[in-house]
Design a protein around this nucleic acid. Structure first.
Length: 286
DNA sequence: AAAACAGGCAACCGCTGGCCC
DNA sequence: TGGGCCAGCGGTTGCCTGTTT
Protein backbone atom coordinates (compact mmCIF):
# COMPACT_ATOMS: atom_id res chain seq x y z
CA UNK A 1 0.00 0.00 0.00
CA UNK A 2 2.68 2.39 1.05
CA UNK A 3 4.65 1.22 -1.92
CA UNK A 4 1.85 1.78 -4.37
CA UNK A 5 1.25 5.19 -2.89
CA UNK A 6 4.89 5.96 -3.29
CA UNK A 7 4.81 4.76 -6.87
CA UNK A 8 1.72 6.75 -7.58
CA UNK A 9 3.25 9.83 -6.05
CA UNK A 10 6.50 9.51 -7.91
CA UNK A 11 4.57 8.99 -11.13
CA UNK A 12 2.55 12.06 -10.45
CA UNK A 13 5.64 14.05 -9.60
CA UNK A 14 7.35 13.00 -12.80
CA UNK A 15 4.23 13.90 -14.69
CA UNK A 16 4.15 17.28 -13.03
CA UNK A 17 7.78 17.98 -13.76
CA UNK A 18 6.98 17.62 -17.45
CA UNK A 19 4.33 20.30 -17.27
CA UNK A 20 5.26 23.50 -18.95
CA UNK A 21 4.83 26.84 -17.22
CA UNK A 22 5.39 30.44 -18.15
CA UNK A 23 4.68 32.23 -21.38
CA UNK A 24 2.86 30.36 -24.09
CA UNK A 25 4.57 29.70 -27.41
CA UNK A 26 2.95 30.22 -30.78
CA UNK A 27 2.91 26.47 -31.28
CA UNK A 28 1.04 25.93 -28.02
CA UNK A 29 -1.44 28.64 -28.91
CA UNK A 30 -2.05 27.00 -32.27
CA UNK A 31 -2.52 23.57 -30.75
CA UNK A 32 -5.01 24.83 -28.21
CA UNK A 33 -6.90 27.00 -30.66
CA UNK A 34 -7.18 24.28 -33.27
CA UNK A 35 -8.30 21.74 -30.73
CA UNK A 36 -11.01 23.96 -29.27
CA UNK A 37 -12.25 25.13 -32.65
CA UNK A 38 -12.72 21.52 -33.69
CA UNK A 39 -13.85 19.95 -30.44
CA UNK A 40 -15.16 22.70 -28.21
CA UNK A 41 -13.98 23.60 -24.74
CA UNK A 42 -15.11 20.64 -22.65
CA UNK A 43 -13.12 19.62 -19.59
CA UNK A 44 -9.92 21.54 -19.44
CA UNK A 45 -7.64 18.78 -18.22
CA UNK A 46 -8.96 16.65 -21.03
CA UNK A 47 -8.50 19.49 -23.50
CA UNK A 48 -4.91 19.94 -22.39
CA UNK A 49 -4.17 16.27 -22.80
CA UNK A 50 -5.96 15.77 -26.12
CA UNK A 51 -4.53 18.91 -27.64
CA UNK A 52 -1.07 17.51 -26.92
CA UNK A 53 -0.16 20.28 -24.53
CA UNK A 54 2.08 19.85 -21.53
CA UNK A 55 0.03 22.34 -19.58
CA UNK A 56 -2.49 22.07 -16.79
CA UNK A 57 -6.14 22.36 -17.68
CA UNK A 58 -6.22 25.48 -15.61
CA UNK A 59 -3.47 27.07 -17.64
CA UNK A 60 -5.21 26.15 -20.89
CA UNK A 61 -8.49 27.59 -19.70
CA UNK A 62 -6.84 30.84 -18.72
CA UNK A 63 -4.96 31.13 -21.97
CA UNK A 64 -8.09 30.50 -23.99
CA UNK A 65 -10.37 32.80 -22.06
CA UNK A 66 -7.94 35.66 -21.68
CA UNK A 67 -6.09 35.58 -24.95
CA UNK A 68 -7.05 33.10 -27.63
CA UNK A 69 -10.82 33.24 -27.67
CA UNK A 70 -11.89 34.81 -31.00
CA UNK A 71 -14.19 37.44 -29.53
CA UNK A 72 -11.57 38.93 -27.24
CA UNK A 73 -11.23 42.68 -27.74
CA UNK A 74 -7.71 43.93 -27.51
CA UNK A 75 -6.27 47.39 -27.11
CA UNK A 76 -6.98 50.29 -24.82
CA UNK A 77 -10.23 50.51 -22.97
CA UNK A 78 -12.52 53.13 -24.46
CA UNK A 79 -13.81 55.98 -22.30
CA UNK A 80 -17.18 54.25 -22.35
CA UNK A 81 -15.68 51.08 -21.04
CA UNK A 82 -13.74 52.95 -18.39
CA UNK A 83 -16.87 54.72 -17.31
CA UNK A 84 -18.74 51.47 -17.13
CA UNK A 85 -16.00 49.88 -15.06
CA UNK A 86 -16.04 52.79 -12.63
CA UNK A 87 -19.77 52.57 -12.32
CA UNK A 88 -19.95 48.82 -11.94
CA UNK A 89 -17.05 48.69 -9.52
CA UNK A 90 -18.80 51.23 -7.36
CA UNK A 91 -21.75 48.87 -7.24
CA UNK A 92 -20.08 45.51 -6.95
CA UNK A 93 -16.54 46.08 -5.80
CA UNK A 94 -13.90 43.63 -6.98
CA UNK A 95 -16.34 41.31 -8.71
CA UNK A 96 -14.26 41.33 -11.85
CA UNK A 97 -15.98 38.52 -13.66
CA UNK A 98 -19.36 40.08 -13.01
CA UNK A 99 -18.15 43.43 -14.27
CA UNK A 100 -16.63 41.76 -17.32
CA UNK A 101 -20.02 40.37 -18.26
CA UNK A 102 -21.10 43.88 -19.13
CA UNK A 103 -18.08 44.61 -21.29
CA UNK A 104 -18.29 42.27 -24.26
CA UNK A 105 -14.90 41.02 -25.35
CA UNK A 106 -13.12 42.20 -22.23
CA UNK A 107 -11.86 39.71 -19.70
CA UNK A 108 -12.02 39.88 -15.95
CA UNK A 109 -8.25 39.75 -15.91
CA UNK A 110 -7.99 42.78 -18.15
CA UNK A 111 -10.44 44.76 -16.06
CA UNK A 112 -8.70 43.77 -12.88
CA UNK A 113 -5.37 44.85 -14.30
CA UNK A 114 -6.87 48.12 -15.44
CA UNK A 115 -8.23 48.79 -11.99
CA UNK A 116 -5.03 47.92 -10.23
CA UNK A 117 -2.66 49.72 -12.55
CA UNK A 118 -4.66 52.82 -13.45
CA UNK A 119 -7.31 53.46 -10.88
CA UNK A 120 -5.46 52.37 -7.79
CA UNK A 121 -2.40 54.21 -8.96
CA UNK A 122 -4.34 57.44 -8.92
CA UNK A 123 -5.62 56.68 -5.47
CA UNK A 124 -2.10 56.02 -4.27
CA UNK A 125 -0.89 59.30 -5.72
CA UNK A 126 -3.62 61.10 -3.87
CA UNK A 127 -2.90 59.14 -0.75
CA UNK A 128 -6.51 58.08 -0.67
CA UNK A 129 -7.91 54.62 -0.12
CA UNK A 130 -9.16 53.51 -3.53
CA UNK A 131 -12.42 52.28 -2.04
CA UNK A 132 -13.03 55.31 0.12
CA UNK A 133 -15.86 57.81 -0.32
CA UNK A 134 -13.28 60.47 -0.82
CA UNK A 135 -11.83 58.70 -3.79
CA UNK A 136 -15.27 58.11 -5.27
CA UNK A 137 -15.95 61.82 -4.86
CA UNK A 138 -12.77 62.64 -6.68
CA UNK A 139 -13.64 60.26 -9.50
CA UNK A 140 -17.14 61.68 -9.73
CA UNK A 141 -15.89 65.22 -9.89
CA UNK A 142 -13.06 64.79 -12.33
CA UNK A 143 -12.68 61.53 -14.06
CA UNK A 144 -16.28 60.86 -14.97
CA UNK A 145 -16.97 64.25 -16.58
CA UNK A 146 -13.77 64.00 -18.51
CA UNK A 147 -14.63 60.56 -19.74
CA UNK A 148 -17.98 61.86 -20.84
CA UNK A 149 -16.33 64.68 -22.68
CA UNK A 150 -14.05 62.20 -24.34
CA UNK A 151 -17.06 60.20 -25.40
CA UNK A 152 -18.58 63.26 -26.98
CA UNK A 153 -15.47 63.79 -29.03
CA UNK A 154 -15.49 60.26 -30.38
CA UNK A 155 -18.78 60.26 -32.16
CA UNK A 156 -18.08 57.73 -34.86
CA UNK A 157 -18.94 54.46 -33.19
CA UNK A 158 -22.31 53.14 -32.21
CA UNK A 159 -21.63 50.41 -29.69
CA UNK A 160 -24.35 50.18 -27.11
CA UNK A 161 -23.28 49.87 -23.52
CA UNK A 162 -25.79 48.90 -20.97
CA UNK A 163 -25.85 49.61 -17.30
CA UNK A 164 -27.48 47.18 -14.98
CA UNK A 165 -30.23 48.44 -12.76
CA UNK A 166 -29.19 50.44 -9.80
CA UNK A 167 -30.00 48.58 -6.67
CA UNK A 168 -28.15 50.62 -4.16
CA UNK A 169 -27.12 54.15 -3.53
CA UNK A 170 -23.48 53.49 -3.91
CA UNK A 171 -23.23 54.42 -7.53
CA UNK A 172 -20.15 56.27 -8.56
CA UNK A 173 -22.25 58.23 -10.94
CA UNK A 174 -24.55 59.33 -8.22
CA UNK A 175 -23.96 62.13 -5.83
CA UNK A 176 -22.62 60.70 -2.64
CA UNK A 177 -24.57 60.90 0.56
CA UNK A 178 -22.56 63.89 1.51
CA UNK A 179 -23.81 65.71 -1.55
CA UNK A 180 -27.47 65.02 -1.06
CA UNK A 181 -27.94 68.52 0.16
CA UNK A 182 -27.12 69.74 -3.30
CA UNK A 183 -30.59 68.69 -4.32
CA UNK A 184 -29.43 67.59 -7.70
CA UNK A 185 -32.77 66.35 -8.83
CA UNK A 186 -34.79 69.46 -8.67
CA UNK A 187 -34.25 70.49 -12.28
CA UNK A 188 -34.20 67.13 -13.87
CA UNK A 189 -36.43 64.17 -14.26
CA UNK A 190 -34.69 61.01 -13.22
CA UNK A 191 -37.80 58.95 -13.16
CA UNK A 192 -36.44 56.42 -15.58
CA UNK A 193 -34.43 54.79 -12.86
CA UNK A 194 -35.71 52.56 -10.21
CA UNK A 195 -34.28 50.19 -7.73
CA UNK A 196 -35.19 46.64 -7.05
CA UNK A 197 -36.87 47.75 -3.89
CA UNK A 198 -38.99 50.18 -5.85
CA UNK A 199 -37.25 53.29 -4.72
CA UNK A 200 -35.60 55.51 -7.22
CA UNK A 201 -32.00 56.44 -7.55
CA UNK A 202 -30.26 59.01 -9.63
CA UNK A 203 -27.19 58.91 -11.75
CA UNK A 204 -25.61 62.30 -11.90
CA UNK A 205 -23.96 61.84 -15.23
CA UNK A 206 -25.28 58.82 -16.95
CA UNK A 207 -28.90 59.67 -16.53
CA UNK A 208 -28.49 62.56 -18.87
CA UNK A 209 -27.05 60.50 -21.61
CA UNK A 210 -30.25 58.61 -22.13
CA UNK A 211 -32.93 57.14 -20.03
CA UNK A 212 -33.86 53.96 -21.75
CA UNK A 213 -35.66 51.84 -19.21
CA UNK A 214 -34.11 48.55 -20.23
CA UNK A 215 -30.80 46.90 -20.74
CA UNK A 216 -29.44 43.95 -22.58
CA UNK A 217 -28.56 40.72 -20.91
CA UNK A 218 -25.06 39.32 -20.85
CA UNK A 219 -25.32 38.02 -24.37
CA UNK A 220 -26.77 41.24 -25.67
CA UNK A 221 -29.74 39.28 -26.88
CA UNK A 222 -32.54 40.08 -24.48
CA UNK A 223 -33.79 43.35 -23.22
CA UNK A 224 -34.30 43.58 -19.52
CA UNK A 225 -36.32 46.23 -17.78
CA UNK A 226 -35.14 48.85 -15.39
CA UNK A 227 -31.81 50.11 -16.54
CA UNK A 228 -30.10 52.74 -18.56
CA UNK A 229 -28.18 52.55 -21.77
CA UNK A 230 -26.14 54.86 -23.85
CA UNK A 231 -24.52 54.64 -27.21
CA UNK A 232 -20.80 54.85 -27.42
CA UNK A 233 -19.61 57.99 -29.08
CA UNK A 234 -23.09 59.19 -29.75
CA UNK A 235 -23.65 61.20 -26.69
CA UNK A 236 -24.77 64.30 -28.49
CA UNK A 237 -27.87 62.64 -29.81
CA UNK A 238 -28.58 61.28 -26.41
CA UNK A 239 -28.00 64.45 -24.53
CA UNK A 240 -24.28 64.89 -24.67
CA UNK A 241 -24.70 68.16 -22.92
CA UNK A 242 -24.97 67.29 -19.31
CA UNK A 243 -27.40 69.62 -17.60
CA UNK A 244 -27.00 69.61 -13.89
CA UNK A 245 -23.41 68.66 -14.28
CA UNK A 246 -22.31 72.24 -13.91
CA UNK A 247 -24.51 72.52 -10.87
CA UNK A 248 -22.78 69.62 -9.38
CA UNK A 249 -19.38 70.93 -10.19
CA UNK A 250 -20.10 74.41 -8.99
CA UNK A 251 -21.84 73.35 -5.85
CA UNK A 252 -19.40 70.68 -4.95
CA UNK A 253 -16.86 71.90 -2.48
CA UNK A 254 -14.59 69.27 -3.89
CA UNK A 255 -14.71 70.53 -7.42
CA UNK A 256 -14.63 74.20 -6.63
CA UNK A 257 -10.98 74.81 -6.30
CA UNK A 258 -9.99 72.33 -8.92
CA UNK A 259 -12.43 73.55 -11.46
CA UNK A 260 -11.15 77.07 -11.10
CA UNK A 261 -7.51 76.30 -10.76
CA UNK A 262 -5.31 77.99 -13.33
CA UNK A 263 -3.49 75.62 -15.54
CA UNK A 264 -5.67 72.74 -14.58
CA UNK A 265 -5.53 70.38 -17.47
CA UNK A 266 -9.03 69.14 -16.94
CA UNK A 267 -9.72 68.28 -20.52
CA UNK A 268 -6.73 66.34 -21.53
CA UNK A 269 -7.16 62.82 -22.69
CA UNK A 270 -8.60 61.16 -19.65
CA UNK A 271 -8.12 57.74 -21.12
CA UNK A 272 -4.46 58.19 -20.45
CA UNK A 273 -2.70 58.66 -17.18
CA UNK A 274 -2.66 60.71 -15.18
CA UNK A 275 -6.32 60.65 -14.47
CA UNK A 276 -6.02 64.20 -13.31
CA UNK A 277 -3.43 66.66 -12.36
CA UNK A 278 -2.43 65.60 -8.91
CA UNK A 279 -1.01 68.96 -7.95
CA UNK A 280 -4.25 70.69 -8.78
CA UNK A 281 -6.36 68.55 -6.55
CA UNK A 282 -4.06 68.56 -3.60
CA UNK A 283 -7.01 69.07 -1.33
CA UNK A 284 -7.92 65.43 -1.73
CA UNK A 285 -4.74 64.42 -0.03
CA UNK A 286 -5.01 63.20 3.47
C1' DA B 1 24.70 53.91 -25.03
C1' DA B 2 23.67 51.62 -21.05
C1' DA B 3 21.87 51.04 -16.53
C1' DA B 4 18.06 51.86 -13.49
C1' DC B 5 13.46 52.36 -12.91
C1' DA B 6 8.42 52.07 -13.51
C1' DG B 7 4.27 50.49 -15.62
C1' DG B 8 1.49 47.13 -17.84
C1' DC B 9 -0.02 42.74 -18.40
C1' DA B 10 0.11 37.62 -18.86
C1' DA B 11 0.25 33.87 -16.07
C1' DC B 12 0.26 31.54 -11.73
C1' DC B 13 -1.53 30.55 -7.02
C1' DG B 14 -4.77 29.52 -3.58
C1' DC B 15 -9.36 29.34 -2.22
C1' DT B 16 -14.26 28.16 -2.84
C1' DG B 17 -18.21 25.86 -4.34
C1' DG B 18 -20.45 22.43 -7.21
C1' DC B 19 -20.73 17.88 -8.89
C1' DC B 20 -20.08 13.04 -8.83
C1' DC B 21 -19.04 8.63 -6.88
C1' DT C 1 -21.70 11.89 3.87
C1' DG C 2 -17.12 12.60 2.88
C1' DG C 3 -13.49 12.72 -0.44
C1' DG C 4 -11.76 13.72 -5.03
C1' DC C 5 -11.95 16.34 -9.09
C1' DC C 6 -12.91 20.33 -11.60
C1' DA C 7 -14.13 25.11 -12.98
C1' DG C 8 -14.22 29.66 -11.72
C1' DC C 9 -12.80 33.55 -9.18
C1' DG C 10 -9.87 37.17 -7.03
C1' DG C 11 -5.22 38.14 -5.47
C1' DT C 12 -0.43 38.12 -6.50
C1' DT C 13 3.83 37.61 -8.96
C1' DG C 14 7.24 38.17 -12.31
C1' DC C 15 8.61 39.26 -16.86
C1' DC C 16 8.77 42.37 -20.70
C1' DT C 17 8.96 46.82 -22.53
C1' DG C 18 9.20 51.66 -22.60
C1' DT C 19 11.04 55.69 -20.27
C1' DT C 20 14.24 58.22 -17.65
C1' DT C 21 18.72 59.34 -15.97
Amino acid sequence: MANSMKKKKSFKESEETELRRGPWTLEEDTLLTNYILHNGEGRWNYVAKCAGLKRTGKSCRLRWLNYLKPDIRRGNLTPQEQLLILELHSKWGNRWSKIAQYLPGRTDNEIKNYWRTRVQKQARQLNIESNSDKFFDAVRSFWVPRLIEKMEQNSSTTTTYCFPQNNNNNSLLLPSQSHDSMNMQKDTDYSGFSNIDGSSTTSTFMSHLTTVPHFMDQNNTNIIDGSMCFHEGNVQELGGYVPGMEDYMVNSDISMECHMADGYSAYEDVTQDPMWNVDDIWQFRE
